[in-house]
Write a protein that binds this DNA or RNA. Structure first.
Length: 174
DNA sequence: CCCTGATTCGC
DNA sequence: GCGAATCAGG
């Protein structure tokens, strides 16, 4: 459901240049199509240069013909979840998104993973929150991304792309 | 294949 | 109004 807050977030992120899928990931509970549809309804389409290709018309809905045993219906978005990505965190997250695959080499961190003792905001994590760590685990500012992390992994779509980048590609970018 | 936004249209 | 399905393209 598009609450005033969600619409506001949508407007903001769209203005910042995030893609529809990224916005959908942050909002959680909606598909990128939903976001695009909403963007159109809000009449805030064009945004600098994109794939804005004018000429587009008709669709001529073709007949369904034989039913073909299509595959799974695809669940897509989760129920309500509402992702608590609000206030302070939002601003920070937005910044991360704005500068995509720029500096992505953070040390393996493997053993540095969240001190099992300290006051970790780890308690805020759920099965669907992105567990991508931000900041120095030894400082107060440390926190997790926390965005909607579907059922495809421990991270949100954005961080998954960074975390699971193929070795070959990483080498090329270096 | 990955992704992008754009459009249509049943609900 | 909503958003899945679809389309057109990078």
């Amino acid at each position: 459901m598009w609450t005033d807050e969600r619409v506001e977030t949508l407007r903001k992120l769209w203005a910042e240049g995030l893609s529809a899928s990224q916005i959908a990931a942050q909002l959680g509970g909606v598909s990128r199509n939903a976001v695009i549809g909403k963007v159109h309804r809000l009449k805030l389409s064009s945004r600098g240069r994109t794939t804005a290709a004018p000429t587009r018309q008709k669709k001529t809905v073709q007949a369904p013909v034989a039913t073909v045993t299509k595959a799974a219906p695809r669940p897509v978005a989760a129920p309500t979840r509402t992702v608590t990505a609000t206030v302070g965190a939002t601003a920070l997250q937005a910044q991360f998104e704005v500068e995509p695959v720029a500096r992505q080499y953070l040390r393996p961190v493997e053993n540095v993973v969240v001190p099992i003792s300290r006051h970790l905001q780890l308690v805020d994590l759920t099965e669907r929150t992105c567990k991508w760590p931000n900041g120095d685990p030894l400082t107060e500012e440390f926190h997790f991304c926390g965005n909607e992390a579907g059922e495809t992994g421990p991270y949100c779509r954005y961080h998954s792309k960074i975390a699971f980048q193929p070795a070959a590609e990483r080498r090329r970018l270096r």
